[in-house]
Computed example of a mutant assay.
Amino acid sequence: MDAAAVPSDGFVLDVRENDEWAAGHVEGALHIPMSDFVGRLGELTESAEDGRRVHVMCRVGGRSAQVTQYLVQQGIDAVNIDGGMQAWEGAGRPMVTDNGTPAFVL
Rank of each mutant, 00 (worst) to 15 (best):
M1R: 14
D2V: 03
A3G: 14
A4S: 15
A5N: 11
V6I: 15
V6T: 13
V6E: 12
V6W: 13
V6N: 10
D9W: 01
F11E: 11
F11Y: 13
F11P: 12
F11V: 09
V12R: 11
L13D: 08
L13Q: 01
V15L: 04
R16F: 01
R16Y: 04
E17T: 02
D19S: 04
E20A: 02
E20Q: 10
W21T: 00
A22T: 14
A23G: 00
G24W: 02
G24I: 07
H25M: 01
H25Q: 00
H25E: 03
V26D: 05
E27W: 02
G28H: 00
G28P: 04
A29F: 03
A29V: 06
L30W: 10
L30Q: 09
L30P: 09
L30E: 06
H31Y: 01
P33D: 08
P33W: 11
P33F: 09
S35A: 11
F37H: 07
F37R: 10
V38P: 06
R40N: 13
L41I: 15
L41F: 15
G42T: 13
E43M: 11
E43K: 09
L44Q: 10
T45P: 10
T45C: 04
E46Y: 09
E49D: 09
G51T: 09
V54E: 11
V54S: 12
V54Y: 12
V56D: 01
V56I: 05
M57Q: 03
M57N: 03
M57Y: 00
C58F: 04
C58T: 07
C58W: 06
R59Y: 03
V60K: 09
G61C: 02
G61E: 02
G62F: 07
R63Q: 10
A65P: 04
Q66L: 08
V67H: 03
V67M: 03
T68S: 04
T68M: 07
Q69A: 15
Q69E: 15
Y70K: 10
Y70C: 06
Q73A: 14
G75Q: 07
D77F: 11
A78Q: 05
N80L: 03
N80Y: 05
N80I: 06
N80V: 06
N80D: 11
I81G: 02
G83M: 01
M85Q: 01
Q86T: 13
W88R: 08
W88Y: 08
G90N: 08
G90C: 00
A91T: 02
A91W: 07
A91R: 03
G92V: 12
R93M: 06
R93I: 04
P94E: 08
P94Q: 10
D98R: 08
N99E: 15
G100K: 09
T101I: 02
A103M: 11
A103D: 12
A103F: 08
F104T: 15
F104R: 15
V105W: 08
L106W: 13
L106R: 15
